[in-house]
């Protein structure tokens, strides 16, 4: 996986330590590359991301205004790819996190950022929606998810979640809580910063 260094690094390659300066490129193993990206020490660009995850793509719920490094389609939410990011383009996409999101789907079925640490589901929707949601999820004093970014692996649980959620009317966040409660995917809750929330 090709990465570009953002900070000076000493990397062992073929038995030798090699020094890399900011701006240098190197083709590294995926695990090391993702770790360096997570640390902010490197980044991937355009086609180098694709070679790391050839089965990944983006389902945009509206026409994106920026160029994307992954295959994408504009359509209703669905798991079109083996690893899909369902993205609402009103939310700026952090390209540096895409490889990590797709990588998480090797172990998890879904990965979605929470919307807030303090805002809870009981503040959402109408009284009728809250009542219906509480009937299903038992308690509304829970965080809810930012459904503008949903990473999902193509699997039964995730497909049922997306089908239920995308066909629901009313408040989308409450619908998403009902969906995951009903179909119980292995869902990795991501920090709200993934959706651009400052802490």
């Amino acid at each position: 996986m090709w990465i570009q260094f953002l900070t000076p690094q000493m990397i062992e390659m073929a038995g030798e330590n090699r020094r890399f300066s900011p701006g240098d490129w190197a083709d590294l193993g995926k695990a090391l590359a993702l770790r360096l990206i997570a640390q902010g020490a490197a980044r991937t660009l355009s086609s180098e991301i694709i070679t790391g995850f050839p089965d990944a793509g983006i389902v945009c719920t509206a026409e994106p205004q920026e160029s994307l490094a992954f295959p994408f389609v504009v359509e209703e939410p669905s798991l079109l790819f083996e690893r899909t990011l369902i993205w609402e383009p009103t939310l700026p996409l952090r390209m540096d996190l895409l490889p990590i999101g797709f990588h998480l789907l090797e172990r998890w079925e879904m990965a979605v950022p929470i919307a807030s640490l303090t805002d809870l589901a009981l503040s959402l929707g109408t009284a009728k929606e809250r009542k219906e949601t509480q009937r299903i999820i038992r308690d509304l004093r829970v965080p809810y998810y930012d459904t503008r970014i949903i990473f999902a692996r193509r699997c039964s649980a995730a497909e049922q979640v997306i089908r239920y959620w995308s066909s629901s009317t009313g408040n989308k966040e409450l619908a998403f809580l009902r969906a995951i409660y009903l179909y119980k995917p292995m869902l990795c809750a991501l920090p709200a910063t993934w959706a651009g929330v400052s802490l």
């Binding site: 172990r107 303090t118 809870l120 308690d139 004093r141 965080p143 119980k184 292995m186 869902l187 809750a189």
Partner: peptide, 11 residues
């Protein structure tokens, strides 16, 4: 990974 349900701060 396991099936984790998030509770809110009140809990």
């Amino acid at each position: 990974p396991i099936k984790v349900w998030l509770l809110g701060r009140p809990w």
